[in-house]
Amino acid sequence: MPAVESEKALEEDSLSSGQLAFHARDTRINTIVTAHFDVVWRSLRRLGVPEASLDDAAQQVFIVVARKLDTILVGGERPFVLGVAVRVASDMRRTHSRRREVADDAAPVAVDPAPAADELIDRKRARQLLEHVLTSMPMDLRAAFTMFELEEMSVPELATVLGVPVGTAASRLRRAREHFHDAVRRLGRSTGGGHE
């Protein structure tokens, strides 16, 4: 770096250094968005963010990530980003619950009592039923369940995402599974399929 003598030159060097810092951050956040946008979007959906609010929620996630960029360790982007997504989804659900703004696709799905034709339910109906089951879970269990079962995250990574010890993450996952099994059994009885 060239020696600086005048205040103007010093200011220009500082500005250059800051501009470069900005550029590096811009590059890194752009990379994070590219790599993790899809998983953030579908995680927010699975965590119960209403369809009409998904874009807003995704924006909020990446804005928080950008603010905290300096604290994110290299290689730790995914659990950090998803941890933010869990918190954004929790906040949004509380907000929507207070405002009683429940979009049609976020309302509890009325389970059709008519028996399924066979054990293979079409995917759209299956997704509605899954949403019904997930909606019935408390948020902490829902987050553990969706991250582990649907994103196939490891338990240690799940613990990082949730911000809890590994043992706590495993415990939540087990309770979430029990909840899932019970809810699906009830669904099976209500659809007349007896799927156990």
């Binding site: 946008f37 899809d38 979007w41 579908r42 959906r45 699975r46 998904l54 054990e119 293979l120 339910i121 995917r123 759209k124 299956a126 997704r127 039923l129 899954l130 089951v133 969706t146 582990f148 079962e149 649907l150 196939e152 338990v155 495993a170 996952l173 599974r177 899932f180 099994h181 699906v184 669904l187 099976g188 399929g193 799927h195 156990e196």
Partner: peptide, 25 residues
């Protein structure tokens, strides 16, 4: 712990979990 979809699980549970693979943006 192994994800349910990698274990033996009943058909209804499997159908529900697999339907989440459609969760694209």
């Amino acid at each position: 712990m192994v994800p349910l979809l990698r274990e033996e699980t009943d058909d209804l549970e499997r159908s529900l979990l697999e339907s989440a693979r459609d969760d694209l943006s």
